[in-house]
Write a protein that binds this DNA or RNA. Sequence first.
DNA 1: TGTGAAAACCTCGTAGT
DNA 2: ACTACGAGGTTTTCACA
Lengths: 153, 153
Amino acid sequence: MLDVRDKRILEALQEDAGVAVADLADTIGLSVSACWRRIKALEDHGMIARRVVLLDRRKSNVATTVFVGVRTSRHSIEWLEAFRKAISDIPEIVEAYRLTGEMDYLLRLVVPNVDIYDAVYKQLISRLDFTDITSFISMEELKFTTAVPLRYA
Amino acid sequence: MLDVRDKRILEALQEDAGVAVADLADTIGLSVSACWRRIKALEDHGMIARRVVLLDRRKSNVATTVFVGVRTSRHSIEWLEAFRKAISDIPEIVEAYRLTGEMDYLLRLVVPNVDIYDAVYKQLISRLDFTDITSFISMEELKFTTAVPLRYA
DNA sequence: TGTGAAAACCTCGTAGT
DNA sequence: ACTACGAGGTTTTCACA
């Protein structure tokens, strides 16, 4: 269980990691050193995994999101290795999960448009056998956040 | 079209935003000020949208990912507004998309375990009418990155 | 674009509550 | 365990060449 103040620190840093420790300290009501020490402890414990910049998707020209549901009958080690390799090689694939239920895997891709998605799709099926592939084009992104809820932490 | 060096800067910052400008500058082969000015320009143009920390999902006790596919017949404004409200209110929902095809919406949730997911699910259906909801539990996260490809930028 | 210098900030020790 | 202070080093920021 995390301290309430640690949660507040993490909430703030999940929204904006560029804030100065001094500012963060007094929005939370902590001295700079106490705040800094907490941040450092959270980093040392690995609770804070990394600091990154998030790019504007439109300006990066990858405004289109596509979900790809994949089914396969080939559950061999070789197939899986090739699949993993493809996933890590293709930078348009930003998320990949193995699922329960009717789909085996779900991928999220970001691409400039549907035509480019088609090219990536072809690249994918040329590298691997799939029993079934279903694509879902995103028409609208209602929510995307890297901030996870801290109520369970 | 982005400059090659801007791309290199963005690639580095997408992986690690904690790097010192001086270090970044000489891995790229640029003076500190040139590098700093580029970073600032990328921020000012909004290409760099934000700086955030990413938390360890296990340590945050939200190791379980669930996808929720949603269908609805109620396409009224009121329903949509209520849906949007629910999505923004519920912090376990980290992504939400409106899709083409058989599913209307796809949500990604992060929760401690399946039991808690069930509670969130119940909360969701108590707030809104759905024609159909399908849940996919993630067994394994093969890839998750916030870094978008820059080959189209 | 580069140099350099000032300003801001981080990092952490120490002492006191 | 926190506060307050502060020194010293690093980094950011920017004027000027």
